[in-house]
């Protein structure tokens, strides 16, 4: 297993289908919607791979009271944004996993462990995992996420990870795979393509 590159947070709750992590906003840049991430499962042999579908910042009465002010003191604004919001929660939909034999685009045998570090899937790992657009299957099968928007954002992330000269070809091949998956649901396919166009993919 490769070492995770710089954790973005730690898991607070999870299942085989999704996991939720927490991150301090002051520690690093926030994860983005559609980004791929990974966390180790309970056996220590499997790296569970997810796509971030929700980033949540809760409010409270003090935040609401302060939001209504015309002139919020700068130190209180910094306190609210960097201290009080912690932790920010992000949730990822599981789209596959990796073990010694390679990648699988189905649900893992076990979920990650509580407080397991979550890191972004980047570089060569991201290229390999997204080489096939098979991760789209679990996204499109999920009922609890904005699937079309998420798939478009994930594809965009995979495209951006590739060298400029390979992007159009990758997008075309991925588009074909997704078109096959959604052959019986053209309205949904149009939603994915529309979202891709809007995100510049």
């Amino acid at each position: 297993m490769p070492d995770p590159t710089g954790p973005i947070g730690r898991i607070t709750r999870c299942s085989t289908q999704s996991f939720t992590g927490a991150v301090r906003p002051s520690a690093l840049d926030l994860p983005a919607f559609g980004a791929f991430c990974q966390a180790q499962d309970q056996s220590g042999q499997v790296q569970v791979i997810g796509v971030i579908y929700d980033i949540r910042i809760e409010d409270d009465p003090l935040a609401r009271q302060m939001a209504a002010l015309e002139d919020l003191p700068s130190e209180q604004l910094a306190d609210a944004q960097q201290n009080r919001q912690a932790p920010i929660e992000f949730s990822a939909l599981t789209v596959g996993y990796r073990r010694a034999k390679g990648y699988s685009y189905s649900l893992p045998p076990q979920p990650p462990l509580t407080l397991a570090p979550v890191s972004l899937l980047e570089g060569e790992d991201l290229l390999q995992f997204t080489e096939k657009a098979s991760f789209a299957r679990l996204i499109l099968a999920s009922l609890n996420v904005p699937a079309e928007q998420l798939l478009a954002a994930a594809l965009r992330c995979a495209v951006q990870a590739r060298p400029e000269g390979e992007r159009d070809r990758y997008l075309m091949l991925s588009g074909r795979s997704i078109a096959r998956l959604l052959a019986g649901d053209l309205a949904r396919l149009e939603q994915v393509l529309g979202a891709l166009r809007e995100t510049g993919g």
């Binding site: 002051s26 003191p73 700068s74 130190e75 910094a78 306190d79 960097q82 201290n83």
Partner: peptide, 14 residues
């Protein structure tokens, strides 16, 4: 404890 510096852009120390 919390240390807040008025009119400062950085977050208070807690």
């Amino acid at each position: 404890g919390i240390l807040i510096q008025h009119d400062c852009q950085s977050a208070p120390e807690t």
